[in-house]
Amino acid sequence: MDIELITNILFAMVRSGTPLLLVALGEVVCEKSGVLNLGQEGMMLMGAVTGFIVALTTGSLALGVLAAMLAGVLMSALFGMIALGLRANQVATGLALTIFGAGLSAFIGADFVGKPLVGFAPIAIPVLSDIPVIGPALFQQDILVYLSLVLLVLVWLFFRVTRAGLIVKAIGENPWSAVTLGLPVLRVRWLAVAFGGALAGMGGAYLSLAYTPLWAEGMTAGRGWIALSLVVFASWRIGRILLGAWLFGLASILHLVFQGMGVDMSSNLLATLPYLATIVVLVILSSKQSRIRLMAPMSLGKPFHPAG
C-alpha cells in the first residue's frame, strides 16, 4: 500500500466514523443516567430525513442540522413519554421507536428520494491539513466532523470535572439513593434522553447532508445499532468511543481498502463486514462477563419511579 492510499483510507475512516461517534456520544450520556434507548436507528432516520428536507427547501445546511436535532429530540421525547412517563419496558419502547422512525421517515421523505443536494464541503485548516498521512483525515473535513470532536471533548469534560456529570452518573448507578439525596432523577433522565435524541438526529443529518448528500429510505443501514454496540465496546468510557467509532468506521469502508489492494470481492459480501465485526467485538467483550457488569451503569434499563 502506498502513502496516498493510506491517507485516503484514514480520511474515509474518520468520515464514516463520524455518525457513529455522534450517536454513540448521545447514547452514552443517556445510558450513564440509567436509560437504555434502543431507538437510535429511528431517531437517526428522522434526523436524516428532516435535515435533508429542511436543507433542500430553505437552502441552508445549518438550518437542516438544527431541524434534524430538533426531530431527534422530538423522537426521544416520545420515548421519554412512554418509557419514563408511563414506565414501559425500555427495550420494547426503543424497538418501537426504531420501527416508528423507519415508517415515519419513509413516509415524509417519499417525495424527496433521489433529489440532489450540495452537502457540507470540507474546510481545510491551514498548515495542519498539510501534515502527511493524518493531515487530511483530521484537518480537512467538514464542519460536522470538527463539531463531533468538540462534542466528544465537552462530554468527556462534563463527566470528568462537572458536578452535573457526577449527578448523572449517580442517578445511573442508583436512582433510589439519588432520590433520597434530593436529586431530580426523572428530570435528569429526561434531559439525558433528549441529549441523546439531539445527537442521534445530528448523526442522521451527517449522513444525509455530508456523507452522502441525499435521502434514501432506511439509509442509516443499521448504524444506530452499531453505535449502540459501540457504547458497549467502549465500556461506557468516553475516550474509547472515539477509538471505537474509527475502528467501526474502518470496518465499513474496508471495500475501499480491498479495492486499493487490488482484491476483487463482491461488494455485497464486503458490506457484511461491519456487522460481523460488531458481533465479534460484542462476543469478545461480553465473554468477560464480570467486566461488563462492573462497567455498565447499575440501573441501566430498569424503570424507576419515585412514587413506586
Binding site: 412512554i82 420501527i99 415508517g103
Partner: peptide, 12 residues
C-alpha cells in the same frame, strides 16, 4: 410507506 407508519404507530 404509509403502511409502515401505521405499523409503527400501532406498536407505540
Amino acid at each position: 410507506a404509509l403502511g409502515s407508519l401505521f405499523q409503527g404507530m400501532l406498536l407505540f
